[in-house]
Design a protein around this nucleic acid. Structure first.
Lengths: 225, 225
DNA sequence: GCATTTATTTGCGTATGCATTAAAAAATGT
DNA sequence: ACATTTTTTAATGCATACGCAAATAAATGC
């Protein structure tokens, strides 16, 4: 079987992944409109799988279907950012508390440790994309060991929604050195089984991060991203 | 124009609504499998709109697509209930806090008042369905005045997922007289702007409700609903 | 009999075509 | 010129068709 011709995943899956990619990297900019047939042409497939992908993306809050106007890539306003960070604050704080209650061993927490180390390395090189990736990894891992699959899914969705906005503000802000101190404190609380502390510290961390990014948007008059 | 022939909503919308209805009322029981073509026949339409509806329902956690086995109506286990109530506890508590901070007038809070009254009336008549509807209404309204549209959407989704399980346990438990006392306390805290109190009281209310239903499932050996 | 291969069935993923109807463009009246 | 009606255009929602692959049944070998 010719590997180049292997069709391992369905077209609707490919459409989903590819459209997500194009939304995140700005090839499909916030606020832009696109006809289903146009997207289908670009992705070299028929409208059917594209339509399915687009419906999924709508339910994930990344775009909006406007019949006869095309699909609109949803911009993210400061108000949206505020909503999303509030949701993440609540749910991740619970995850931190539950992780602390779970009595994990240091090996169980190696995912968090690794993410923290990666952030240090990236920060030392001023590699902000790398830092952002490791930061995402920390939060995703925290939520994972929190043990609630629904919180995992919701947090992933919220993170997707702010991804573009987060990336564009990455180089606007001062180096987030404080951030990893917070992460280390959260990890310590989890490792020692301090559930109340893990919750409280992580909440403060998220509330602080929210304030920073909201201020940044305000300062730069960014009404949507 | 003949009213009987008016086709006001799309078939995929009808499919979505009708499938939801059948899932909630047990016509499509938890754990059952159904082919797309079978559902299409039942709903008198082609596979296309049914498939779209089914994809939406999958993303809402009500069913699961298992290629060549049909769509499976997802059962809800006690672990699922626990996850869902945890999410609702966190997000509704924030909504209560925000509602208290918003400085609403008594008229603004009439939706909550109405729901509480409706619950009293229903409870006096032992009308458990009516009580459940009003209880849903209270929680939906609380989240609405909390002012976070994403929390609204998530809470609605979570409520949908536990709807069947909640309904089947409705008549198993003692009359929830305590519940409305909690609601009144939450309302009072919101009305007086006691944000910390609103959050704390509502959290306790939800944690208590979770414990009751989990115990009930345990006691009746209900592994999934 | 039981395991393994081959044949058959059938559900799904996708392409395609078409009716509907909203939007845009053109025509008409004032 | 501007508003209003009529015509045209075209994007969508949906039905339909079909090939592929997975599941099942039948056939073959041991």
């Amino acid at each position: 079987m010719n590997a180049a011709l292997v069709k391992s995943v369905s077209n609707s899956q490919r459409a989903l992944q590819e459209l997500r990619r194009r939304i995140f990297n700005g090839e499909l900019p916030a606020g832009s409109d696109h006809l289903e047939s146009e997207l289908a042409d670009q992705l070299n497939m028929s409208r059917t799988p594209v339509r399915e992908a687009v419906l999924m993306l709508e339910s994930q809050g990344l775009l909006e279907l406007r019949p006869r106007k095309g699909v609109r890539i949803l911009p993210v306003s400061p108000e949206d950012m505020s909503e999303i960070y509030d949701v993440l604050t609540e749910l991740e704080s619970l995850a931190a508390e539950r992780a602390a209650q779970a009595g994990y061993s240091p090996e169980d927490l190696s995912g968090l440790t690794k993410a923290i180390d990666d952030m240090d390395v990236a920060l030392a090189q001023s590699d902000m994309e790398g830092w952002a990736t490791a930061d995402d990894q920390f939060h995703a891992e925290l939520v994972r060991i929190g043990g609630n699959s629904r919180i995992m899914a919701i947090a992933a969705m919220m993170t997707d929604q702010v991804r573009r906005a987060r990336n564009t503000t990455l180089y606007m802000r001062p180096k987030p050195t404080k951030s990893n101190d917070d992460h280390r404190d959260v990890l310590a609380a989890i490792a020692t089984g301090d559930a109340e502390g893990a919750r409280r510290i992580h909440r403060q961390h998220r509330e602080h991060a929210k304030q920073i990014i909201i201020d940044l948007l305000e300062k730069h008059r960014l009404r949507f991203l």
